[in-house]
Design a binder for these strands. Structure first.
Length: 506
RNA sequence: GGGCCGCUAGCUCAAUUGGCAGAGCAGGGGCCUUUUAAGCCCUUGGUUACAGGUUCGAGUCCUGUGCGGCUCACCA
């Protein structure tokens, strides 16, 4: 049985009083003639019209949530807020009657959704205000919203007793959104980001597709999966860890440019930059290679930044990021030389191990040479890559789906993008030789075997698809959550995910 | 999973060497016709995350648990 606080019990009593007067506390329908921003815009246009002799207002009906109330005896001021903005109401007893004003004061609370009819006017202080002739309840709020007070001051919203407890905000994101406009703005930018990506790719003849989330064999990345079960088919299934292997099957099928935006699931640790489910963009582009993909990547991200931030210059955690192409390009080998003075081409495996140890990097029991290089890179280079940077040409043994360089079989045509110290993108010239691919899977399975005692799944159907012939292509993956972090200046991935994963509260 | 830090009223936060658990806002009762954190008077509200322990006495010290934050590991 739910228990109600004293405040909630008070509000339930008000709700009953509304009912007793015949006012429905939750009517089925609202009437609204204007959004709040439309109303204020209309008012300012009529006010600036010199031929219009003071006839600058019409009756209108606005809807929104009560965010402040100030009662003054025979009148009351209040603000209501809708998705477009906020406006002040003036409720006068000589307009609506003394009893009606009393009812407003007694039975309407902050957080209630209300409907108010009246004409717009300006108060002495020049604030556009609805002079209310009629109002009614649209939805009674039983529980008080967490933020106590806030107010607009010359465009700047000042918040008092802000609701900023991180845990409480994530657990009750609805309340967080209701009282923190800057949080709503993050998710508007997130939505705009995805729209802009779709627009950019659609304009270039990429076809948006959907591939299975439930997969009998997981692949395309090196993460541990979530597993589940189909009861009727008696089939164990995995939630996908990437889209890659299915999207490339579509190139076999004759599509030349495909992309997917969707959710990946990785059963790994959570951190400021990792959530168990996250949103990924992947595209595959026939008859292109990783250099073409680099060009498209910098154009695409700059386009998105321009769309949602109105600029390719973006503030991030005290840095000024510049997404304007061309971005810096540096090979993995050069980057390590520059930031750590290690040239792995001229280093033995033992020397790489000692480099790791001197930098307090913990080495897994069975680390390949490529893994050592990658760990050195993460430790020594990654934190320094603030401006958008392509790091290209990676060790073959940590890139089983990428094609080797023509003159260097131990290096693959692969790049990653780093911005603000975050890994943002991963892309390569895709391996399309089924014999080579099978050998890579086998090699990878052997390493995996020794590490964990489990065989890495061998996707025979994927090899079969590739055996029919896959055009040469460049492939690309980008973490959308991290891109949104960059575009909204957020240090935590949880701030850009509406309902981030939390342990159950008890 | 390891380490560090945190958890006090609906919200934001105080509480001296261990000594009566407080404020602002929100809530309730009043006054008030141009306020906008409105103001003024009065007022309700607490299992100090939870369970133990030390002590005459614990929000404060100790142990454990839960949840969170940061961080390390893991995550090509």
């Amino acid at each position: 049985m739910r228990s109600f606080t004293e405040i909630e019990q008070n509000r339930l009593a008000k709700l009953e009083r509304l009912r007793e007067r015949g006012e429905h506390p939750f009517p089925h329908r609202a009437e609204r003639s204007h959004s709040i921003s439309m109303a204020t815009q209309y008012f300012s246009e009529l006010s600036s019209d010199k031929d219009n002799n003071g006839e600058n207002s019409i009756e209108m009906t606005l809807c929104g949530r009560l965010r402040s109330v100030r009662t003054m005896g025979k009148l009351a001021f209040a603000h209501i807020e809708d998705v477009s903005g906020r406006i002040q109401l003036l409720i006068r007893s000589d307009a609506i009657g003394k009893d009606r004003l009393k009812q407003f004061e007694a039975d309407f609370d902050l957080g209630d959704f209300v409907q108010a009819t009246g004409k717009l006017m300006e108060t002495r202080t020049g604030e556009v205000t609805l002079d209310v002739s009629n109002f009614r309840m649209l939805a009674k709020s039983i529980s008080p919203l967490p933020a106590a007070k806030e107010v607009d001051e010359e465009g700047d919203r000042k918040v008092y007793s802000a609701f900023d407890n991180v845990e409480a905000r994530y657990r009750e994101r609805y309340a967080d959104l209701a009282v923190n406009p800057h949080v709503r703005e993050i998710f508007r930018i997130r939505s705009g980001t995805i729209s802009a990506l779709r627009y950019f790719l659609d304009k270039r003849d990429f076809l948006e597709v959907e591939t299975p989330v439930l997969q009998p064999i997981y692949g395309g990345a090196a993460a541990r999966p979530f597993s589940t079960h189909h009861n009727q088919l008696h089939q164990d299934l995995f939630l996908r860890i990437s889209f890659e292997l299915y999207l490339k099957r579509l190139l076999v099928g004759g599509f030349e440019r495909v992309y997917e935006i969707g959710r990946d699931f990785r059963n790994e640790g959570v951190s400021l930059t990792h959530n168990p489910e996250f949103t990924q963009l992947e595209f595959y582009w026939a008859y292109s290679d990783y250099e073409d993909v680099m060009m498209l990547t910098e154009q695409m991200v700059a386009f998105v930044a321009g769309e949602v931030c109105d600029d390719t210059l973006v503030s991030y955690q005290g840095h000024k990021l510049d997404f304007q192409p061309p971005w810096r390009r540096i090979s993995l080998r050069e980057a390590l030389i520059e930031y750590s003075e290690i040239d792995y081409v001229n280093s033995s495996d033992d020397q790489l191990v000692s480099h790791c140890k001197s930098r307090e990097i913990q080495i897994p029991s069975k680390a390949t040479r490529g893994k050592l290089i990658e760990m050195l890179f993460s430790k020594c280079v990654e934190p320094h890559l603030i401006q958008p940077t392509f790091v290209y040409d990676y060790p073959r043994d940590i890139s089983p789906l990428a094609k080797s360089k023509e003159n260097d079989p131990n290096t693959v045509e692969r790049f990653e993008v780093f911005v603000g110290g975050l890994e943002l993108c991963n892309a390569f010239t895709e391996l399309n030789d089924p014999i080579d691919q099978e050998q890579r899977f086998v090699d990878m399975g052997r390493d995996h075997n020794q590490e964990s005692g489990e065989a890495h799944p061998l996707d025979l159907d994927y090899l079969k698809a590739m055996s029919y012939g896959m055009p040469p292509n460049g492939g690309f993956g980008m973490g959308i959550d991290r891109l949104v972090m960059l575009l909204t200046d957020q240090a935590s991935i949880r701030e850009v995910i509406l309902f981030p994963h939390l342990r159950p509260k008890e």
